[in-house]
C-alpha cells in the first residue's frame, strides 16, 4: 500500500490534471466507444429491417419517463453531495450521496417492473431484433447503474474513515463524473428505444 501512496503523492502531475481525473476521463472515453458501437449497431440493424415496431406502442413510456426523471434527479443529488464534500459538511454529504444511491435503486426497481411485464408476456431478447437491442442496451446500461451504485456505496462507507484523506474529495468527483455518464447514456437510450 505504501507504494501506492508513494506514486500518488510524491509527484505533482505534469499536466496539472490529477491522475485520477485523467484516468476517469480516459475510462469514460472508452465507455463512449462501447456505447457508440451499440448505437451504431442499432442504427444499422434498424435501417436494414423491413419493419420496426413503434417503441411507444410496445414499450412502457410512462415508466421510462419516470426513470429518466429519477436518474436526472440522482445526478443533481450527486452534484450536491460533491459540493458538500468540498465545503466539508459531512452530514449533508452523507444525506445526498445516500439519496443518489437510493435513486439508483429506484431506477433499477422500475426497470425490473418493466422487464417483468415483458417476461410475463413471453417477450424475451430472442423474440425479435428490436427486443434483442432493447434488452441488450438497457441491460448493459443497468449493469453500469449497478456499478455506479457499488462505487457510491463504497465511498459512502469509506467516508467515515477517509473523510479527511487528501484524495477523498477527488474520488467523489470521479464517481460523480461516472454517474453523470451513466445518466447521459440513458438520456440517449430513452428516445432511441421508446420515442423514435
Amino acid at each position: 500500500m505504501s507504494s501506492t501512496a508513494h506514486a500518488e503523492h510524491l509527484q505533482e502531475p505534469v499536466t496539472g490534471i490529477p491522475n485520477g481525473k485523467l484516468g476517469i476521463w480516459l475510462f469514460l472515453a472508452s465507455e463512449v466507444m462501447l456505447f457508440s458501437t451499440l448505437f451504431t449497431t442499432y442504427i444499422i440493424l434498424r435501417v436494414a429491417a423491413p419493419e420496426w415496431p413503434r417503441g411507444w406502442e410496445v414499450l412502457n413510456v410512462p415508466l421510462a419517463m419516470t426513470n429518466t426523471f429519477v436518474l436526472i434527479t440522482s445526478s443533481v443529488t450527486m452534484v450536491l453531495a460533491y459540493a458538500k464534500a468540498v465545503t466539508r459538511e459531512k452530514a449533508a454529504f452523507n444525506k445526498y450521496l445516500g439519496l443518489t444511491i437510493a435513486l439508483g435503486f429506484v431506477f433499477l426497481g422500475i426497470k425490473a417492473i418493466e422487464y417483468g411485464a415483458k417476461f410475463e408476456h413471453r417477450i424475451a431478447p430472442s423474440t425479435s431484433i428490436f427486443y434483442a437491442i432493447y434488452f441488450t442496451t438497457t441491460g448493459l446500461h443497468g449493469l453500469h447503474v449497478i456499478g455506479g451504485i457499488i462505487a457510491n456505496s463504497v465511498l459512502l462507507w469509506l467516508s467515515n474513515k477517509q473523510w479527511d484523506h487528501p484524495l477523498f474529495v477527488g474520488r467523489i468527483e470521479y464517481a460523480g463524473l461516472y454517474w453523470h455518464f451513466v445518466d447521459i447514456v440513458w438520456i440517449f437510450l430513452f428516445p432511441a428505444l421508446y420515442l423514435l
Binding site: L38, P125, S126
Partner: peptide, 19 residues
C-alpha cells in the same frame, strides 16, 4: 471497446438466442 460490444452481442446470440 467496439470489440467488447461485439463480443457481448455474440454472447447474446449464443446464450439468449438473439439474432
Amino acid at each position: 471497446p467496439p470489440l467488447e460490444a461485439a463480443a457481448v452481442l455474440q454472447v447474446m446470440d449464443r446464450v439468449f438466442g438473439t439474432s
